[in-house]
């Protein structure tokens, strides 16, 4: 490859039509809260583990909604279940149980 001094950014297009959303639908059936999220990021801002790792529940949910679970699920491994995200969530989402259900359904 000739080095032109610049490169092409790989496309970040997400083909929602091609994504397999069956697991997400399954998640929504047990956790109707999963679609309540408005991605405000309060959870990520208050996250105890987020100080040390890249854990970001907002991003995890966005990723799941868009069918790119492989990119986001490993983040959940560092969650300490402390529940601060639950306390701050303006939508009253039971985030701890949501995380447990994600783990159960996506089997990470």
């Amino acid at each position: 490859m000739i080095d032109f001094g610049y490169s092409l950014t790989p496309s970040s297009t997400i083909e929602i039509d091609d994504a397999d959303m069956s697991l997400f639908d399954e998640l929504c059936a047990v956790e109707p809260d999963a679609i309540k999220c408005m991605s405000c990021g309060s959870c990520a801002a208050s996250c105890t583990a987020g100080v040390f790792t890249d854990l970001n529940l907002r991003k995890v949910l966005l990723g799941l909604q868009r069918g790119c679970e492989e990119d986001v699920l490993p983040q959940l491994k560092s969650c300490m279940l402390c529940g601060k995200c639950h306390i701050v969530c303006p939508r009253g989402i039971n985030t701890r149980h949501l995380i447990l259900s994600i783990c159960k359904i996506y089997n990470i």
């Binding site: 040390f52 529940g83 447990l100």
Partner: peptide, 22 residues
């Protein structure tokens, strides 16, 4: 400069082994 959770929430969720790390 950042807290490491005490482990009680994990313990209450029945995750005794996981809580040990914290």
């Amino acid at each position: 400069q950042g807290t490491i959770c005490c482990g009680r929430p994990l313990l209450l969720s029945g995750r005794t082994e996981e809580a040990k790390a914290l």
